[in-house]
Write a protein that binds this DNA or RNA. Structure first.
Lengths: 133, 133
DNA sequence: TTCTCTCTACGACTTCTTTCGTAGACAAGT
DNA sequence: ACTTGTCTACGAAAGAAGTCGTAGAGAGAA
């Protein structure tokens, strides 16, 4: 149960992971086409990236058919968690609260979402032995 | 308002900015010594970085005395805001709520901090009906 | 079979970032 | 005046990330 992967995906690798998370196992061709929706990218560029990510164990691949099928080998949540930790340290010097305040304050959030957060707050309070009001 | 500097500091530049934000205007020597507390860094490395940051207008400098005195030219908040925006998009596909939930859920937050957030939530709710500016 | 299309592999090039060596200026101290 | 220490400027090396050209294999159509 030890470290699954202290590996930090780069900017582009993350974009590819997003595609794999959203669409499930995909061929290079498919990933490339998705990437092109946002930004023109050569086919071999995508291929190379996926190969590197495979080496880094960020993705796994099925080589059965001629076109290999790639799949994310890390979950979206664990990756987000990991990146969030780093971001928190480097940008907010570790203060989760400052980050949350800024995120809530400057990005529109629907009333419903605010409610969900309220629920979470309540839950956190209940779990915490020494909560004062 | 239309400032032309949505420049994104690099990892190391951010570290230096943190030092300047925390300690105010500083000489290269001082910044370098602060950096060394975390990681051994050559003096000229720090110098070069500050010079580059000066070119990029991330810092300003006072050249009066022989040892120049550098000062952050961007505020901590605006930088955090900018980086947060990027991070939100690339890592959480724009969902501020998901980010907040994860931040609150997985990083220790004191009861007092939870309270501050609660206050913010209330404030957001009050302001929200017709927000558009 | 032969031609054509698509795929993987691989290596080289570019750009960006970080690191550092070296040179010249300048102020003190002796 | 000379030596020493600290400073800036500059250029170049080292590293990291992303980009792409080219070669060769295989599959299917003609």
């Amino acid at each position: 149960m030890e470290n699954t992967s202290p590996l930090k995906p780069t900017e582009t690798e993350l974009e590819i992971l997003q595609i794999l998370w959203q669409h499930g196992p995909s061929t290079v061709r498919f990933v490339n086409e998705e990437q092109n929706k946002a930004k023109e990218t050569g086919y071999t560029t995508t291929l190379k990236l996926l190969q590197i990510m495979h080496e880094k164990q960020l993705v796994s691949r099925d080589e059965e058919s001629r076109s290999h099928v790639y799949q994310a080998a890390v979950t979206e949540e664990e990756t987000q968690q990991h990146l969030l930790g780093r971001f928190l340290d480097t940008t907010f010097r570790g203060s989760a609260m400052k980050l949350v305040m800024q995120a809530l304050g400057n990005h529109r959030t629907t009333p419903d979402e605010l409610n969900q957060i309220r629920h979470l707050l309540k839950k956190l309070e209940d779990d915490s032995p020494n909560a004062d009001s």
